[in-house]
């Protein structure tokens, strides 16, 4: 079995972040204690989701410009893996919240926005499922996907930052400017050295999963897709 360089990189990065994430010394921040380690696994999910959905957007635009059905399959599969990352992000966040906020789900603005983002892309999957004609499905799906992306970005990037929340980085005026991902001073250089490999590892893993799904779909639909 021969793996291309980025797949090897993905495996190595994830192995590194999974081991180092559990053994390094983490700084003591407020009431987080050891749950701060979730940072290495929860936050990369959102980076991964944004990367995958951006790729999905790119392929939808490419489909509308070129009309090649292949690109629509790419867009759909990237979006589906983006949904998977969103669900994983919500679950890791909820488990963490259980031990720091006391409840799995406390209707925090950031939890709500992330859940709505997943709903938006569920609607994309439902829309695609409602049409049987492949060309029409591709075109209508691509239009919705592009529209959805431009609502998704304000929803997760801007709106949650305008309200106070319990989420790290949720305090107005704190260092980090309400950034939910990198909560200002809580990130020391050692954590950074584990965090960024984890982010890239997960993004590559997402692309890898989508890639397998795309290849499987294109293989099973070889007779209808030729271009």
């Amino acid at each position: 079995m021969k793996l291309s360089w980025w797949k090897i990189a993905c495996i190595l990065l994830l192995l590194f972040s999974f081991t180092a994430g559990f053994i390094i010394n983490v700084p003591y921040v407020g009431n987080l204690y050891q749950t701060i380690r979730n940072f290495f696994f929860h936050v990369p999910m959102w980076f991964g989701q944004i990367a995958l959905l951006s790729l999905s957007l790119g392929y939808s635009i490419a489909y509308l410009r070129s009309g090649r059905l292949k690109y629509d399959i790419y867009a759909a599969e990237f979006a589906k893996v983006g949904i998977l990352f969103g669900i994983l992000g919500l679950v890791t966040g909820a488990i963490w919240a259980r031990y720091t906020w006391g409840e799995y789900w406390s209707n925090d603005p950031k939890q709500m926005a992330a859940a709505i983002a997943v709903l938006i892309y569920f609607a994309y999957v439902v829309l695609r499922g409602s049409m049987t004609d492949m060309d029409k499905r591709a075109r209508v799906g691509a239009v919705y996907n592009i529209f959805a992306y431009f609502i998704y970005i304000p929803l997760i990037m801007i709106l949650p930052r305008m309200v106070q929340s319990l989420h790290p980085g949720g305090l107005e005026g704190a260092e980090g400017g309400g950034n939910p991902a990198m909560g200002g001073d809580s990130l020391d250089p050692v954590m950074r050295a584990v965090f960024w490999p984890s982010v890239f590892g997960w993004i590559l893993a997402g692309i890898w999963i989508s890639n397998l799904k795309i290849r499987f779909f294109l293989f099973t639909h070889k007779n209808i897709l030729n271009g």
């Binding site: 709505i116 709903l119 938006i120 569920f122 609607a123 439902v126 829309l127 919705y144 529209f147 959805a148 609502i151 304000p154 929803l155 709106l159």
Partner: peptide, 10 residues
């Protein structure tokens, strides 16, 4: 409604 509801939330 399915398409629009999540999109109108922001």
């Amino acid at each position: 409604a399915i398409l629009g509801f999540p999109l109108i939330i922001p």
